[in-house]
Amino acid sequence: MTAADTLETRRRELGDFLRAHRDRLVPESLGLPGGGRRRTPGLRREEVAQSCGMSATWYTWLEQGREVSASASALSGLARTLQLTPAERAYLFELAGKRDPSLPAPPDGDGMDVAASLGRAVAAIDAPAYILDSLWNARAWNRPAARLFVGWLDGNSDRNLLRYVFLSPTARTVIPQWQERARRVLAEFRADSSRHLQDEGLQALVEELRRRSPYFARCWREHDVVDRTGGERTFEHPRRGRLSYEQVGFAVATRPDFKLVMLVGPAASGRGLAAPANRRSRDL
């Protein structure tokens, strides 16, 4: 893929993202009078532009994916007007190719390959743990994780988390409230994917899932973006029943494309399976 193709992909994604979030807001959210008939849902382009101090023409060009560049201050204004979450704001700046001025300077790294040492570290963890790469393929996992993630990390299953969640029949039984949690997983992946939209592997994965899963295609069009934060994760294990954990995620300083995920619980055993829990989880 050429540099021109990369820029076009980002501009198109940025326009779709802005339009999706504009459609979700109502005039009252900006202190504007409501009521009256509107041809389209949400805010008008002119209302967004006026609220963030941008010309309506310039904002329209951004939504249309034209060859224009918004400044960091203009993007900050858009983030406030569209009431973006921190994850959505980060996604906006990634798509626009700008650094968010509200963020601290990134740390330096030596870039060495630490995959082997990370694999050994994961194996030494008692709780279920695994490492995801930029496409959310599991690159390393331990035995407790293989026992927990039936149909994903056991046997010879496909190791991609998105394929597991959206395509595997097993996932729909293992993951309570599957639709809600699948939508959340995809919104988390979207936050990650903003850094490498031009990657051919990412584009191929998205196109495959859009073709094979109507629900994935629907959720992808919604442009939801959230951080992959911690919290309760509940599973319906085929042999142990309801299991509940707290998810903890770690960024890898020397491998920013890798993330370590651990699932710990107050009653986690050496076998990596927590005691049954009664509470439900909202996301994976």
Rank of each mutant, 00 (worst) to 15 (best):
R212G: 02
R212C: 07
R212M: 09
R212T: 06
S213Q: 07
S213P: 08
S213I: 05
P214F: 01
P214K: 06
P214A: 06
P214C: 07
P214T: 06
Y215S: 09
Y215G: 03
Y215E: 14
F216I: 09
A217H: 06
A217Q: 09
A217G: 08
R218K: 10
R218S: 09
R218Y: 12
C219S: 08
C219K: 00
W220A: 12
W220L: 13
R221Y: 02
R221H: 12
E222C: 05
H223C: 11
H223L: 07
D224C: 04
V225Q: 04
V225S: 06
V225H: 04
V225F: 00
V226Y: 00
V226R: 13
D227N: 12
D227S: 15
R228I: 03
T229H: 07
T229A: 13
G230S: 08
G230L: 06
G231A: 05
G231T: 03
G231R: 05
G231E: 01
E232Q: 14
E232P: 04
E232M: 14
E232W: 08
R233V: 15
R233P: 00
R233N: 04
T234I: 12
F235T: 00
F235V: 02
F235C: 01
F235Q: 00
F235Y: 15
F235E: 00
F235A: 02
F235W: 13
E236L: 14
H237W: 08
H237D: 05
P238K: 09
P238A: 12
P238I: 15
P238D: 14
P238C: 14
R239A: 14
R239D: 10
R240Y: 10
G241A: 08
R242W: 11
L243M: 09
L243G: 03
L243Q: 09
S244V: 14
S244A: 07
S244C: 12
S244F: 00
S244M: 06
S244L: 08
Y245M: 06
Y245F: 15
Y245H: 05
Y245C: 03
E246K: 10
E246P: 05
E246W: 13
E246T: 14
Q247C: 06
G249V: 08
G249D: 07
F250M: 15
F250L: 15
F250Q: 04
F250R: 01
A251W: 01
A251I: 03
A251H: 06
A251Y: 02
V252F: 02
A253S: 07
A253V: 06
A253M: 03
T254Q: 13
T254M: 10
T254D: 12
T254L: 10
R255K: 08
R255Y: 01
R255M: 14
P256H: 04
P256W: 02
D257L: 08
D257H: 14
D257A: 13
D257V: 07
F258T: 00
F258G: 00
F258R: 11
F258D: 01
K259Q: 11
K259M: 04
K259N: 00
V261P: 02
V261S: 03
V261E: 00
V261K: 01
M262C: 15
M262E: 05
M262Q: 13
L263A: 01
V264S: 10
V264Q: 11
V264G: 09
V264W: 09
G265P: 09
G265D: 08
